[in-house]
Design a protein around this nucleic acid. Structure first.
Lengths: 152, 152
DNA sequence: ACTAATTAGTGCGATATCGTACCAAATGGA
DNA sequence: TCCATTTGGTACGATATCGCACTAATTAGT
């Protein structure tokens, strides 16, 4: 019950939640019908970091339960954007590989967002975001370490 | 395609998304089984701002489609935490009123969160959040004004 | 080497979210 | 006053998310 600490935390997470909703709606409006942020971010991650990763590694990277990742990957595979191959190092496991269509999809998605970002950067200076992001990263890492590290 | 603007925006919204997930998981773990953040935030809003508001006003306050708010309110009403009464000013409309149980539920939910906040404020100084929140509010308001203002 | 515990992935069920379509009431022109 | 449009709310269907439970493979402890 320390003074206004509770309100401070609530207020912060409340803004985070609303911005998340708004930005998700913005992005999904530009993706082809039936595709969600989750699809895009997985493709983007596979390109930026590395493909060939296992579903579980991806689930942990995105902090989602593994069942959710299974579902997302199934959608991407059905759309021909990724390929699931057996993991040579572990017969229980699989590796997720991008297809050419997957790379193209991600590039097109980014291209489709350019007009939005162009418009927004007239309203929100990129420097303001660049300044905030590392602080958010710090908080994200703290929350991440804080939560129960097993499961998911 | 301006230099790294795209990456800056992506990076920012990415952190926002992850923090949102982590904080939601944290809060929902403390709520009674079957209750979600959406339930809590509506109750909290009705107490902090004012009860007697209409579903549509609430939907706009939380930036969710009105169908989503209908569903959330139905859950709260079934649990006896709110009451839906006719709106004397508009026969199509309704007013959402808290019950005593609703107020108690909200108070208990907050009490259940105190240990978490206590722990977190040892890891994240409240001042750091207090400093970030207004900047997030500004961004949220910009995004809000930017998006298509009708619908939802 | 053998068994117990752990780990990777999926199937299934519950339910939250959200778009479309719809009804009823209210509003605004002519 | 009447009709067209707009607005508040809900029903319904589609699907994303997530917890639980299960199988198969791996790892650890003896």
């Amino acid at each position: 019950m320390p003074d206004r600490t509770l309100e401070t935390f609530f207020g912060f997470f409340n803004e985070i939640g609303i911005i998340e909703q708004l930005s998700r709606a913005l992005m999904e409006a530009r993706l082809p019908d039936g595709f969600l942020i989750s699809h895009f971010t997985v493709l983007n991650h596979l390109i930026r970091v590395q493909d060939g990763q296992t579903p579980l590694v991806l689930a942990r990277a995105f902090q989602v339960p593994k069942t959710t990742m299974t579902h997302t990957l199934a959608g991407l595979e059905k759309a021909g954007l990724i390929e699931m191959r057996p993991n040579p190092a572990d017969k229980r496991s699989k590796c997720v590989w991008l297809t050419a269509a997957g790379r193209a999809f991600r590039d097109q998605a980014i291209a489709a967002l350019v007009p939005d970002v162009d418009r927004l950067r007239g309203l929100i200076p990129a420097e303001a975001l660049a300044e905030l992001t590392p602080k958010l990263t710090e908080i994200r890492e703290i929350l991440d370490r804080d939560r129960n590290p097993q499961a998911r």
